[in-house]
């Protein structure tokens, strides 16, 4: 029963407007400056993005160079899959193989870089309290979710990460061919000597977080769906919090920039590209 008649436009408008002020667990905070969980030391006016992504949900955002992006595993069972593009020229995007090969290491943790397919650094990992991420196994898809959960469609109860990505990239004018190999935050995969994948299901503590720094203007696309190797029969995933704020571009004396000769050249290639 409703207290409004929606039989005419005025009633329908009153009904719609009466929803203002409702709050749900998973939604953006607009403006982001109003977020109650603003990181310590960050000016409210520097906040760029505050959003809680639902289990099975997705979000996408353009961030400028220097912006910090913090992902928080609110309840200990999030799995945030990420695509990453150069916002100025989205045909340049994250290259997972180059990210691993150039850094001579397969695992993502603090100090590592996310590299593009054009020999440049898109983002760097400035802080990581989670210590369990995955650059090997990629996104779930409609077929894999259908096998595990019976369905995998965007309009059903078990959305898959690939189809979430499809919607996320579409809103930036990109399409299925732009869904590149991704990284998965908060669920760990390690490789055994014989090449076998070892999935770390947890349980993990709530509040784990990873903080990234944009090293060029980027488009970030996030999907929060169960990891493709998650063995649980139920669609198990909890909300993820996203916080972003304005920051200074990386200075020349930055320790992450200068940590390795390969990484330094990735920063230099960005700086060269941005020279005007």
């Amino acid at each position: 029963m409703t207290e409004f008649s929606t039989a005419d436009p005025a009633g329908a408008r009153a009904h719609a407007r009466a929803m203002a002020g409702l709050r749900v667990e998973s939604q953006p905070t607009v403006p982001a400056s109003a977020a109650e969980d603003r990181p310590e030391g960050v000016d409210p006016q520097a906040m760029l993005w505050a959003e809680t992504i639902a289990p099975g949900g997705y979000a996408a955002k353009r961030l400028n160079r220097g912006a910090r992006l913090r992902l928080v595993d609110l309840k200990g069972d999030a799995c945030v899959s990420m695509l990453l593009f150069n916002a100025e020229r989205p045909v340049e995007r994250l290259n997972v193989a180059d990210t691993q090969k150039v850094q001579w290491n397969a695992y993502l943790d603090a100090g590592k870089l996310l590299l593009s397919d054009m020999g440049k650094v898109l983002m760097s990992i400035v802080e990581d309290t989670a210590g369990a991420h995955d650059a090997f196994c990629g996104a779930s898809n409609a077929a894999s979710n259908a096998r595990k959960y019976g369905t995998g469609d965007n309009w059903g109860p078990h959305p898959n990460a690939r189809d979430r990505f499809m919607l996320g990239v579409a809103k930036f004018g990109l399409g299925r061919k732009d869904i590149h190999p991704c990284v998965n935050w908060f669920k760990g995969v390690r490789i055994a000597e014989d090449g076998a994948t070892r999935f770390n299901l947890g349980p993990y503590a709530p509040g784990r977080q990873v903080t990234l720094r944009a090293e060029m203007d980027v488009i970030v696309v996030l999907a929060n769906c169960p990891h493709v190797l998650d063995p649980r029969p139920e669609y198990a995933v909890t909300p993820a919090r996203v916080l972003a704020w304005r920051g200074e571009p990386t200075p020349e004396n930055d320790p992450i920039r200068n940590a390795t000769p390969e990484g330094l050249r990735a920063f230099q290639n960005v700086e060269e590209d941005l020279r005007r």
Binding site: N95, V96, A97, D98, Q100, K101, V102, A106, L115, D117, M118, G119, K120, F136, G195, E262, G263, R265, A266, N269
Partner: peptide
């Protein structure tokens, strides 16, 4: 015995990172 699928492809651009300009 086995083949690779994680190493990706070499590119002019990634070569600048791995070996130099």
């Amino acid at each position: 015995e086995y083949h690779d699928t994680i190493g990706g492809a070499c590119s002019c651009e990634s070569n600048t990172l791995r070996y130099g300009h």
